[in-house]
């Protein structure tokens, strides 16, 4: 009985369930919540999940390769904050951008190097670099928590761009999602990520450059974070570095995990990110319309994430014989 129960559960597709839940939620919200089905609100939903979705794309690539990037939000906020600070203090745009790109590249490389070549667990590396990036930029490079976008700068103009009444970040999200889809599905290196995530030792034995690929993933994730940061700054006309201490990071993990990207690596794809983002977007929007305070929203999101991780643990169980030592 029990065995059959497990079997059924395993044969269920998490992506499918989540999609179904998202649809049900959407229908329920459309019927129950006034103003939910309004086109403006729908655009707002898509817009609100765009940045989240972009970050989740970077996270997804890292997770598929059996890693995690806890420094994504710190990189997102701090790189843009530094960029804007440089602009505000009169550095030329090109130079400032070059600095920031170099900085983002350096952090991505550092993450990748420590994970790939020093064999430090990704979770600790990125926790430490996230803390370092925030601390270093906040204490050494910028002067206050929020940095505004200079008047008339392209980042500000970016925020105002509309196409068919849809804000530009939605298109960026869609474009990036399509690119990641092509990368993961149709390029050699994209397929390598799955091999390395599924079984790193075997991947290495058959000659895949597992370590350089690891570095590439963290660099990729760092640049995705930079793009997300620029979009955030463009829509808000400033960047608030306090976002690093918020639960945004866990929302990203939530989107990836709830969409069905297994934390043990090797599974999932762009579609899972889209499904996860849809569910979280509808959920957040609905909670905002019902007027649940932010603090309670955090509580609910944490509960959902916990549930998602428990389900993930049941679907992809680990046991004493196969669990790897030190795999925490």
């Amino acid at each position: 009985m029990n065995a059959i129960g497990w079997l059924n559960l395993r044969s269920l597709n998490q992506e499918g369930i989540v999609f179904a839940i998202a649809v049900v939620l959407f229908v329920a919200a459309a019927i129950g919540l006034p103003g939910f089905i309004d086109p403006n609100n729908l655009v707002a939903i898509v817009r609100s999940v765009s940045v989240l979705g972009i970050l989740a794309l970077g996270m997804a690539v890292v997770i598929i390769g059996r890693g995690i990037d806890l420094s994504a939000v710190a990189i997102m906020a701090m790189s843009v904050a530094w960029y804007l600070q440089l602009l505000n203090t009169g550095t030329s745009d090109g130079l400032a951008f070059a600095y920031v790109v170099a900085g983002v590249l350096a952090i991505g490389l550092l993450n990748g190097f420590l994970v790939a070549y020093a064999d430090v667990p990704a979770i600790f590396v990125t926790l430490a670099t996230g803390s370092f990036v925030f601390g270093y930029v906040r204490s050494q490079l910028i002067t206050q928590d929020a940095v505004p976008v200079p008047q008339g700068h392209w980042v500000e103009l970016l925020g105002g761009l509309r196409f068919l009444d849809i804000p530009i970040e939605v298109f960026v999200f869609a474009g990036l999602a399509f690119l990641f889809f092509l990368f993961l599905r149709y390029t050699k290196w994209g397929r390598y990520i799955y091999f390395a995530g599924d079984n790193p030792v075997a991947a290495r034995n058959i000659g895949i450059p597992v370590r350089p690929m690891l570095v590439l993933r963290y660099v990729l994730s760092a640049f995705v974070a930079l793009i997300a940061g620029l979009l955030t700054a463009s829509s808000l006309h400033s960047i608030n570095t306090r976002v690093v201490n918020s639960t945004l990071l866990y929302d990203i993990v939530l989107v990836a995990v709830i969409g069905g990207i297994g934390l043990s690596g090797g599974r999932g794809g762009v579609r899972n990110v889209l499904v996860g983002a849809a569910l979280i977007g509808i959920l957040l929007n609905a909670m905002t319309i019902i007027d649940i305070p932010l603090l309670y929203q955090n509580l609910i999101k944490a509960a959902i994430l916990l549930g998602a991780i428990i389900v993930d643990g049941i679907i992809n169980p680990r046991d004493e014989q196969t669990a790897q030592q030190g795999d925490i």
Partner: peptide, 12 residues
Amino acid sequence: GTNQMVLGIMLA
């Protein structure tokens, strides 16, 4: 932020 910076360096 200094604290976080130092903690990050120490942890890594």
